[in-house]
């Protein structure tokens, strides 16, 4: 069970959270202008690194707010959490 530090509520059990996948994936500005390849990349391709991964979480059973976290997918260590709209922290 992970202990996830919600930036609004503090550390809480993983079971309280929903997972939202890779963070910082904007909707295309002009979807109709995309090629099939570009549309496929937007729809289906997400980063899948073995290492630090910026991702979205929702504190579904708590404050019900979305936030971002950088988690190391090889160790599950949460390296940083930050609120939506805040810049991604630099992970050394």
């Amino acid at each position: 069970m992970l202990l996830i530090p919600c930036p609004w509520c503090g550390p809480r059990d993983e079971a309280e959270f929903g997972y939202g996948g890779q963070a910082h994936v904007p909707y295309p500005e002009d979807p109709t202008a995309l090629t099939d390849e570009e549309w496929a990349r937007y729809l289906f391709f997400r980063n899948n690194p073995k290492g630090p991964h910026p991702e979205r979480w929702c504190h579904a059973a708590g404050c019900r707010r979305w936030f971002n976290a950088v988690r190391n997918t090889a160790t599950n260590e949460i390296l940083a959490v930050y609120r939506v709209g805040e810049p991604r922290p630099v992970i050394v």
Binding site: M1, L2, E14, A15, G18, Y19, G21, N48, K50, H53, E55, R71, T73, A74, T75, N76
Partner: peptide, 10 residues
């Protein structure tokens, strides 16, 4: 639910 390479789960 989340991606990981840890070979363990919750």
């Amino acid at each position: 639910a989340y991606t990981a390479y840890t070979q363990r789960g919750a």
